[in-house]
Nucleic acid binder design. Structure first.
Length: 463
RNA sequence: GGCGUCGUACCCAAGUGGUUUAAGGGGCCGGUUUGCAAAACCGUUAUUCGCCGGUUCGAAUCCGGCCGACGCCUCCA
């Protein structure tokens, strides 16, 4: 089955054809680094990572660009509140973001351009828009995009401007605009901005809310590229505005495929900073979540449906991760790797079909689990052939290169714990069950759970 | 007010007209294994898809109505 995606702007699934054969230009809206990202933010980044991993698996050369928005109202406000520089704030939260990405086993983007490094391109684009009369200047040095000049405005989100309710934003807006829905390309310098400004032909100031994504994506991927991703909340106005300013500036179609991931819900509502109902990676780490467990929770629902995140589901993810990891060690014990020669089992074709169908991860996982069960039965019955072992190893390897659920990091075991384990092992060999059980209790009090498996003692940290 | 999504077992979650007399995961229960415990492995678990009506030879899947949940329209993944 051909690779298909649900293209938001078409509101339908369509076959994917890259502009340049074998290559994909992928732009994913990155974080605004004013605070720690929460797990809802990472749902989107995880989806984008999955998309990239799948494209890579299919053999595409992917140029993945994720921007870092390091100047806007919030970053400036935060820097002022903390009495520090914008750079200090943004580099702190950029570092934290990268640490979290890494911990969650996300594969790095090809590049992470920063808004503050793209000012020349931003200015260049605004100048073009001014020249072409798509934009206009105001007395305070700001520049606005005139949305009435772009007939296609609203195409992505099916928005009819006349029917929109006048929101509070318009009332409270401190800038002058011809039409309330026009958006800022450039915000003229104000006292509150302090040191934060750049020179532009029409006056000092800083980029508006959306232009940086257009500038960075076009700079890195060209005027017209394949895929642009983000969360559904970015559709309006962010992506709508990107389309308007980009197409008016370049006279080219901007993006072929728009992919939007749904929200992560918590307690029946969307997880968000403003509602205060969010978990950060560090919160989850503290209560014992592994990256694999989080990956499972975020990837086990389809990216276009709302999924609920819950602490109660930790057990579910843990168990799945354990089963798959255990499956790997079962295969390992049979030296499956030695028989692997690139052949894949039939189930892989089903798996591929599901992934190709708009990244249907729930179905792909179902295919994988059914297959794993069948192989487990053969392993139990000792009726598996060497060819099958090799194929199993290959499929498991492919599977994990996409989902990243196998836990191979063995926790650091403190010396005192290792000592007790040794002691217990000795006792067991001498059938001293009382001593063995006592040591197990001691370890439990210290926060370690020991299990006796056919391959010896297995130790795991409790939460 | 405008635009849009969803309602499937105890929980999560696929399936959008017949190959589904509804995937997969968790939980529960049962079995295998085991010094014990845990883990692992296997099996069982919805005649039914929010409610009502309609279309059809045939509907969870299409249409209409009702009820309920959620999202966007304002910075937000």
């Amino acid at each position: 089955m051909a690779l298909r995606f649900y293209n938001s702007i078409k509101r339908a699934k369509e076959d994917f054809h890259p502009i340049e054969t074998g290559k994909v230009g992928l732009y994913t809206c990155g974080p605004t680094v004013y605070d720690t990202a929460h797990i809802g933010n990472f749902r989107t980044f995880m989806f984008e990572d999955l998309l990239k991993r799948w494209l890579l698996h299919l053999g595409f050369a992917v140029n993945h660009v994720m921007n870092i928005t390091d100047v806007d109202d919030k970053t400036i406000k935060k820097a002022q509140a903390q009495g520090t520089s914008l750079l200090k704030i943004t580099s702190k939260y950029t570092d934290l973001f990268m640490d979290d990405l890494n911990w969650l086993k996300m594969t790095p983007a090809t590049s992470y351009p920063k808004a503050t490094n793209s000012i020349p391109k931003i200015i260049e684009m605004i100048e073009i828009l001014l020249d072409k009369k798509f934009a206009y200047r105001e007395d305070d040095g700001s520049v606005y995009f005139n949305i009435k000049s772009f007939p296609e405005y609203g195409k992505l989100t099916n928005i009819n401007l006349e029917s929109q309710k006048s929101g509070s934003r318009i009332v409270s807006d401190e800038y002058d605009k011809d039409s309330p829905q026009d958006f800022a390309l450039w915000k003229g310098w104000k006292k509150e901005d302090g040191e934060v400004y750049w020179d532009a032909p029409w006056g000092n100031g800083r980029p508006g809310w959306h232009i940086e994504c257009s500038a960075m994506s076009i700079e890195a991927l060209g005027n017209h590229f394949d895929i642009h991703c983000g969360g559904v909340d970015n559709m309006f106005p962010h992506h709508e505005n990107e389309i308007a300013q980009s197409q008016c500036a370049t006279d080219k179609p901007f993006v072929n495929v728009w992919l939007h991931s749904e929200f992560l819900m918590v307690d029946g509502g969307k997880m968000s900073k403003s509602l205060g109902n969010f978990y950060c990676v560090s919160d989850l780490k503290k209560i014992g979540f592994s990256p694999e467990c989080i990956r499972y929770q975020l990837l086990s629902g389809h990216y276009r449906t709302k999924i609920s995140f819950s602490i109660d589901k930790k057990h579910e993810g843990d168990k799945v991760v354990r089963r798959i990891s255990n499956f790997q060690s079962r295969l390992n014990k049979r030296n499956a790797l030695e028989f692997a020669d690139g052949l894949l089992p039939e189930s892989y074709q089903k798996f591929k079909k599901q992934m190709n169908d708009d990244l249907n991860t729930p179905k792909a996982l179902a295919v994988f689990f059914s297959w794993m069960k069948a192989v487990n039965i053969k392993l139990d019955q000792n009726s598996i052939t060497e060819i099958e072992l090799g194929k199993a190893w290959e499929f498991l390897t492919v599977f994990d290169s996409i989902f990243g659920l196998i836990q191979n990091s063995i926790a650091e075991i403190p010396a005192e714990v290792a000592l007790l384990l040794n002691k217990r092992n000795k006792a067991r060999l001498e059938n001293k069950w009382n001593e063995s059980d006592n040591i197990r209790d001691m370890l439990k009090d210290m926060g370690w759970i020991v299990s006796d498996t056919s391959s010896g003692q297995h130790i795991k940290k409790t939460n």
